[in-house]
Computed example of a mutant assay.
Amino acid sequence: MTMPYSTTTLPGPARFLLLGDSHAGCVGKAARQAGLPFVGGPVGSGRDFLGPFLDDEGDGGPVFRDAAARRLVQGFLAELGVTGFAGLGVPLVCTFGLSAHSVATRQNWDVHRDRHGAVPERFLRSGLFADLVRASVRGALAFYERTADLGLRVLAPLPPQRVPGLSDPSVFFAAQDVVGAELAARGVEIVDLRERVTDGSGRQRSVFCEPDDTIHGNLAFGRLVVAELLDRAL
Results as ranks from 00 to 15, higher is better:
32 R>K: 15
32 R>A: 15
35 G>D: 11
36 L>K: 13
36 L>W: 13
38 F>K: 08
41 G>N: 12
41 G>W: 10
42 P>N: 10
43 V>P: 02
43 V>A: 08
45 S>I: 04
47 R>S: 13
50 L>D: 02
51 G>E: 01
53 F>L: 04
55 D>M: 01
59 D>Y: 00
63 V>D: 05
63 V>I: 06
65 R>A: 09
68 A>I: 10
69 A>R: 06
71 R>Y: 11
73 V>Y: 05
75 G>V: 02
77 L>M: 05
79 E>H: 08
80 L>T: 01
81 G>D: 07
82 V>K: 13
82 V>S: 11
84 G>L: 05
88 L>F: 08
89 G>N: 11
90 V>W: 10
91 P>R: 00
91 P>Q: 03
93 V>I: 15
93 V>S: 04
93 V>M: 11
95 T>S: 15
96 F>A: 12
96 F>T: 10
99 S>P: 00
101 H>A: 07
103 V>L: 12
103 V>M: 04
104 A>P: 02
105 T>C: 01
106 R>F: 04
107 Q>Y: 14
108 N>F: 11
109 W>T: 02
111 V>F: 01
112 H>N: 10
113 R>Y: 08
114 D>M: 14
115 R>K: 13
117 G>T: 13
120 P>F: 14
121 E>H: 15
123 F>H: 15
124 L>V: 07
124 L>D: 11
129 F>D: 06
130 A>P: 07
136 S>W: 08
137 V>N: 03
138 R>S: 14
139 G>R: 06
141 L>V: 04
143 F>H: 15
143 F>S: 14
144 Y>S: 02
148 A>G: 12
